[in-house]
Amino acid sequence: MTEVNTKTARWFKLIYGLLSLLMLLALLAFSYATWSNVKQQANLSLTPHNQSLTSVVKRFFVHQETLLGELAQSIIVTDNPDNIIQIRLNDVLRATPQMRVLAVVNSKGAIIATTGNIHTLEWLDLFDNDQVTIGRPFRPTFVGENILPMRKPIKNSSGVTTGYVVAAYRLLGNNAIWQEAEEAESKRRSMIIGEDGRVYISYPESDTFWQSFVSMKVEEGFLQTLAEL
């Protein structure tokens, strides 16, 4: 009698184990199907938005780079004040509402002409190397707005860089870069990320007030995922 009970218990455990395994497999299959559906819906929703946002922001930066480049070609850097340079800067600033400040600096970073005063590090320190066009976002004052610097080199007839045209652009608020892209959906976060993982623009801004003072970078794994996409 004991042997029969033992065999029955073994069969019961085996059947119970198989049923548990089947339930687990079914749960995994359901979870995977749900995840795949959510991923597909997210792709269908975000891909058109991403393409549109990328197109608008790219068009803005290409236009600004061309504008600064043409301005740089028309400027000759000297040690003496030049009213013509100041007039050109004022004209370009009035035609570009996203631009907070426009300036001309010499090769050492000293300001030759400017449309306004921004308290910051030396302009040249905002760029990682001599070839970079877009610099690191920064706050000119403790409670000021985040702005993004761009520059184009000024070269003499021999091709030597004698200075830079530097512009600072508003990131948020009225007449800002994000407004150009009409990015206003509160439940979605959009970012412009460089190849090194640096976050140049984020909407909305960083999660906390203090984080917005730091030039943030995304994690390496997330950057690799972006590269694969």
Results as ranks from 00 to 15, higher is better:
residue 197 G to H: 02
residue 47 T to Q: 14
residue 4 V to C: 05
residue 136 R to N: 11
residue 86 Q to T: 14
residue 148 L to F: 02
residue 208 T to G: 11
residue 194 G to K: 10
residue 185 E to L: 09
residue 191 M to Q: 11
residue 170 R to E: 11
residue 175 N to T: 01
residue 223 L to S: 04
residue 155 K to D: 01
residue 206 S to K: 08
residue 80 N to R: 06
residue 156 N to E: 00
residue 59 R to C: 10
residue 143 V to G: 09
residue 177 I to W: 01
residue 62 V to M: 10
residue 181 A to D: 03
residue 23 M to P: 02
residue 50 N to F: 09
residue 135 G to T: 01
residue 15 I to T: 11
residue 53 L to M: 10
residue 148 L to N: 01
residue 53 L to N: 10
residue 100 R to G: 06
residue 96 T to N: 13
residue 26 A to C: 12
residue 119 H to P: 05
residue 104 V to W: 04
residue 64 Q to E: 15
residue 1 M to G: 09
residue 45 S to G: 00
residue 53 L to I: 06
residue 186 S to C: 02
residue 4 V to L: 12
residue 24 L to Q: 04
residue 55 S to D: 12
residue 118 I to V: 15
residue 68 L to C: 07
residue 24 L to M: 09
residue 85 I to M: 08
residue 27 L to C: 14
residue 93 L to M: 03
residue 179 Q to D: 12
residue 55 S to H: 10
residue 65 E to Y: 03
residue 179 Q to H: 10
residue 137 P to W: 02
residue 11 W to Y: 14
residue 124 L to S: 04
residue 191 M to P: 04
residue 129 N to K: 05
residue 87 I to S: 14
residue 146 N to H: 05
residue 41 Q to Y: 10
residue 45 S to M: 11
residue 124 L to R: 07
residue 18 L to Q: 08
residue 75 I to D: 01
residue 120 T to Y: 15
residue 120 T to K: 12
residue 47 T to N: 14
residue 73 Q to T: 09
residue 222 F to G: 06
residue 200 Y to W: 12
residue 187 K to T: 09
residue 124 L to A: 03
residue 11 W to P: 04
residue 54 T to V: 03
residue 48 P to S: 02
residue 83 N to F: 12
residue 88 R to H: 13
residue 22 L to R: 06
residue 52 S to D: 07
residue 14 L to P: 06
residue 57 V to F: 05
residue 44 L to A: 14
residue 132 V to C: 01
residue 6 T to G: 07
residue 223 L to G: 02
residue 216 M to P: 04
residue 53 L to F: 10
residue 86 Q to A: 15
residue 52 S to C: 00
residue 50 N to A: 13
residue 66 T to Y: 03
residue 160 V to P: 00
residue 214 V to C: 05
residue 161 T to D: 00
residue 201 I to G: 08
residue 216 M to K: 15
residue 87 I to V: 15
residue 12 F to N: 15
residue 24 L to W: 04
residue 23 M to K: 02
residue 62 V to N: 07
residue 30 F to D: 14
residue 42 A to E: 10
residue 201 I to Q: 07
residue 100 R to L: 10
